[in-house]
Structure formats: C-alpha cells, structure tokens
C-alpha cells in the first residue's frame, strides 16, 4: 500500500518512513509534511515496505536486500525525482536519487531501541530476557521485539545496515527543525512548526531546480 499526493507534476518525492515503533510515532508528522509539499506543487509517495505497516507480507520473511529492491522498484514505478528518508528509512533509500536523510539511524540502533523496549517490558513482567540474550536469540533464530517478529535474516541484516554507499542525499538533523524528535514521544503526534521547516527545506531545493 502507498499513500500518494499525485498530481502528475514534475517534482516527485518518494518517502521511506521511520521504521517499527518510530514509524507509528512519526506517521502523522510524515503526512503533515506531504500535505505541505502538495501545496508547494510537489507530488509525494509514501510506500509501505514489505512486511511493514499495511503490507500483507510477514515481517519475519523479509531481508534488507528485498527491502532495497522494493524501494528501487517503488521509486521507478512512481517516477521519483527525489527521495526523503526518515530515521532508519535511510538504510533502504536508493543511492542514485538526490534528496534528504532526516535524522538517519543505522539498522543496529533501530534494533537496539527495540531490544531495550523488549527487555524493559520483560523485566516488568518478571521475565529474564536481557539485552544480551535477546540479541543472541535474534541472531540465531529470530526474535519478537516490542511486537515485531524478526527472522534471523532481517535481524542480522539490520545489525549491519547503513545507508547505501555513495548515497546522494543531504543530511537534515533534528536541530534544523527545532524542538525534539517526535519519535521520542510516548504517543504519535505532530508538530506543525517542524513540518513547516522540513517541507521548506525540501520545497526550496526542489522547486529551485
């Protein structure tokens, strides 16, 4: 499934969203940015990677290679001229497209936050799943972390995953938008000033080209 603002316009941005728990917390904000880009004359596309969000594929069967292939196919399908990745979405963004990486995260750090959440939750429930044992299990036979079921392939892939070498995208840090990252919040939320700031960075660059 893909969320689109498609007016058949020249400027076309594909977005690879934040992953896992951060995806939930950032989705409304991501759509806020898309609304603003639409008003600036930019089409945008927010696809689900296989196994994520509303995809019918099982997450545990996915791999990084499969995700990168799907990302390239989606970019080609929608005729994307630019790419925006958010947080861990940076690890799948096609290298050949110009664009932006917002507050990028390695796959290892994305997994680390889930391992931490699972460990804290297990400890609260009286369990003994520690940080190290969860990681060992994940590498060997896959593991469920904070509700997400990882197969060993994806777990190991993500532990090594960084942005594709020679990626052309520019870095946008949270500090450039002001305030704190929405992925830190307890509940999904939105920040109009941050959405304005990110959309402005993108629109000013794309429209001036």
């Amino acid at each position: 499934m893909v969320l689109t603002f498609d007016g058949g316009r020249t400027h076309r941005l594909i977005i690879f969203p934040a992953m896992f728990d951060e995806a939930n917390k950032m989705r409304r904000q991501t759509v806020e940015v898309m609304h603003r880009l639409d008003m600036s004359g930019i089409d945008s596309f927010l696809p689900d990677l296989p196994g994520c969000n509303e995809s019918r594929q099982p997450l545990e069967k996915q791999s990084l290679a499969c995700w990168r292939q799907a990302a390239r196919a989606a970019a080609d399908h929608f005729g994307a001229t630019h790419v925006l990745s958010l947080r861990a979405g940076a690890v799948v963004a096609p290298a050949n497209l110009p664009g932006w990486r917002f507050a990028p995260l390695t796959g290892a750090k994305a997994l680390r936050s889930l391992v931490m959440a699972q460990s804290v939750s297990a400890r609260e429930a009286g369990g003994e799943d520690g940080l190290e044992s969860l990681s060992t299990i994940g590498r060997k036979c896959g593991v469920q972390l904070a509700g997400w079921q990882f197969g060993p392939q994806l777990f190991n892939d993500l532990q090594q995953a960084v942005a594709i070498p020679d990626s052309q995208q520019a870095l946008v840090e949270q500090e450039q938008l002001g305030g704190s990252g929405l992925w830190l919040r307890a509940e999904p939320g939105e920040s109009p000033p941050q959405a304005d700031a990110l959309a402005a960075i993108i629109a000013m660059s794309m429209i001036s080209l």
Partner: peptide
C-alpha cells in the same frame, strides 16, 4: 553486549 552502538558508519 552484542549490539554495540558503534561510531556510525552510516555514510561518513
């Protein structure tokens, strides 16, 4: 610890 938050190799 298995997953160490290393210096980020994410492109430089």
């Amino acid at each position: 610890m298995i997953i160490e938050p290393e210096q980020d190799p994410i492109v430089g």
